[in-house]
């Protein structure tokens, strides 16, 4: 089933980072893609899959972003930062819009992004949102073990489902005894 898995990964990658095909738009995409999440500054909006489109026309640049969570306050900062970085690069008439559809999922986080997240001390999402959504959620959700980003132990437990930001929950490692954030599957 290697082919299937490979195809699925490629499909998710294309969905997560729909880079423009024309050179002018791609150049602007690369500049916008430098903007980082203000709460997790190791991740760019491209790593997250939050950058959805960049279109350069004769006299304007149109950018669309999608929020991670509906109420995520970091969205305003990311939107302002995209505007700032493109304006500084000399683009005029930059417009940044938020789109809700298709809904963002942690499946869109790049592998490089996940590695950077672990290095930063945050456990990356485990498993796929699609798997979570398809199973009929009973009263008790079954959770996959989360690996401690510090010592890689799987002997961890959830302290609180809702953590320091909407996208994270709080865990503790029972081996190295340190608490850590986990970027939960959405």
């Amino acid at each position: 089933m290697v082919t299937t898995a490979g195809t699925t990964a490629a499909r998710i990658e294309a969905e997560a980072r729909p880079r423009p095909t024309d050179a002018a738009s791609l150049a602007a995409w690369r500049i916008a893609a430098q903007v980082v999440d203000p709460e997790i500054p190791v991740l760019t909006i491209e790593d997250l899959g939050v950058l959805r489109s960049v279109t350069v026309t004769d006299d304007a640049v149109a950018v669309t972003l999608t929020p991670t969570y509906s109420g995520c306050p970091a969205m305003d900062a990311m939107r302002d930062d995209v505007l700032e970085v493109l304006t500084s690069a000399g683009y005029e008439n930059v417009a940044v819009r938020l789109v809700l559809s298709p809904a963002w999922t942690t499946d869109w986080m790049s592998e490089i992004g996940k590695a950077k997240l672990r290095e930063y001390g945050i456990a990356a999402p485990t498993g796929h949102a699609t798997a979570r959504a398809s199973g009929p959620a009973g009263p008790i959700s079954l959770k996959m073990a989360v690996k401690c980003p510090r010592c890689s132990s799987l002997n961890t437990r959830e302290l609180a489902h809702f953590g320091s930001t909407s996208c994270k929950s709080l865990y503790e490692c029972r081996d190295c005894l340190e608490p850590f954030d986990y970027f939960k599957v959405l």
Binding site: R30, Q34, E84, A95, V96, S110
Partner: peptide
């Protein structure tokens, strides 16, 4: 992930990014 981020992007600190963001709210759709 493409390589361009490492290649082109100067490392940005959070201070760079949030230093002076002057945004005209009316331009935000």
């Amino acid at each position: 992930m493409s390589e361009h981020i490492e290649a082109d992007a100067p490392a940005q600190t959070p201070e760079d990014i949030h230093g002076h963001v002057a945004v005209d709210v009316t331009t935000l759709d």
